[in-house]
Amino acid sequence: MDMEAMYQEVILDHYRDPHGRGLREPHQAEVLHVNPTCGDEITLRVNLGDGADPVIEDVSYWSQGCSISQASASILFDEVSGKTVSEAFGTLDTFVELMHSKGQGAADEDVLGDLVAFEGVSKFPARVKCALLSWMALKDAISQARPDLGVPIDGAPPAGSSDTQQSTQPTTMEGIPR
């Protein structure tokens, strides 16, 4: 088993030196998402501009977890900061598709940027949730900041905040299996 294929250098670089880490003001929504199988967690804030397709002016986070979830959060910061919500969701959808490809997906670097490094991770079902943790938190935070955008709650269900005391604004619990 080739671990270098999974832990590509770009993933390890983001893990060792995460981008955009730390919780910042101002923010319109804050969510806490947890991977209940391993205890990885992320608190994520968004600050959005105005309009029908607002710009993500800032996304800030505090997280703890494995190299995969940490690197994914760091790359999320790089990929969505300054983008519009629809652009960010385009990246997210492509990334979700890649992560569910069981190693068969062809990653599009134009859309995914550094996220293409996660192609090898998709071969390991237990790690897919690690890779998607921050992205599901982003989706949730945007839907809370701008309920009028009608963001659907779907995809890999995030864990709620019920098992921790760190949430300042409880994560939406609808549709989360017990």
Partner: peptide
């Protein structure tokens, strides 16, 4: 090294 990553290397 996070336990998930320890486990992944052990698994390999």
């Amino acid at each position: 090294i996070h336990p998930h990553d320890v486990g992944q290397i052990l698994d390999s």
